[in-house]
């Protein structure tokens, strides 16, 4: 799967590239408007991570270009300027998502995967991890052929961890993803613990399990 990163900040670019390459994506990167439009003109990408504030042009223009060229890759706008205006304009111009900086790497993966799923696997709505089978359409979870009932939060946590499997997901990243951004000022993210306990109980017969890492975060382990 091919991903293009358009980002003028070299370190930001490096972080994203490094993290995405770990997931075995084929990552290409450019850092200005002109080389981005060149690449877009020549190649097809499954997903483009697009910074709007480029030194030699507005990233929104690239969206227009993509539309004109009839490219059907997904686009996630990555912007330091969390502006409602840009968000609406971007989504209006065909972007799939808008991710304001700073974001958690785990969140980036979740968004990229969501876009990929939406764009590329229209027929494939099943995710299989170990002996756990998840139907994305009706959000049902089967373990060893037996349906287990997950509530919304448990399901979201599970999906988030599966998306970021074998990677340490911090409590903050998890809380913000599942409970929403506004949970941010809560005095600690320890409240996740009770949901996590229930989730673990439901995964009793699964070959995957959620491992707590030094009270810092969680990691999905496949045995």
């Amino acid at each position: 799967m091919k991903i293009l990163i358009v980002e003028d900040e070299p370190q930001m670019l490096q972080n994203m590239r490094q993290s995405l390459e770990k997931e075995h994506y084929n990552v290409e990167a450019v850092s200005d408007f002109s080389s981005a439009s060149e690449k877009i003109g020549v190649y097809n990408y499954d997903c483009i991570l697009l910074d709007i504030g480029l030194p030699d042009g507005n990233g929104l223009e690239l969206l227009k270009l993509l539309k004109k060229l009839n490219k059907d890759g997904g686009v996630i706008i990555v912007s330091a300027k969390d502006s409602l205006d840009d968000r609406l304009k971007g989504l209006d111009l065909g972007a799939d998502d808008y991710l304001p900086k700073p974001f958690h790497m785990a969140e980036l993966h979740a968004r990229v995967k969501a876009v990929m799923r939406r764009r590329n696997f229209d027929g494939n709505k099943i995710v299989e991890v170990g002996n756990v089978i998840i139907n994305l359409e009706n959000r049902s979870v089967h373990i060893e052929e037996k349906e287990i009932n997950f509530n919304r939060k448990e399901y979201d946590i599970l999906m988030y961890l599966i998306t970021n499997k074998a990677r340490l997901v911090t409590k903050a990243a998890l809380a913000e993803h599942v409970w929403g951004d506004h949970i941010d000022q809560a005095d600690s993210f320890d409240f996740i613990y009770s949901q996590m306990k229930n989730l673990r109980k439901k995964l009793e017969n699964a070959t995957i399990n959620v491992e707590a890492v030094y009270g810092v975060g969680y990691k999905l382990q496949i045995s």
Partner: peptide, 27 residues
Amino acid sequence: LQTPLAISINKLELLLENNDLTKDHTE
């Protein structure tokens, strides 16, 4: 401030994924 914050956070997150870290370092 957003961009340097983003870079630092993501760098640290990448570092955290490193399996060789001790408990103290992780914390």
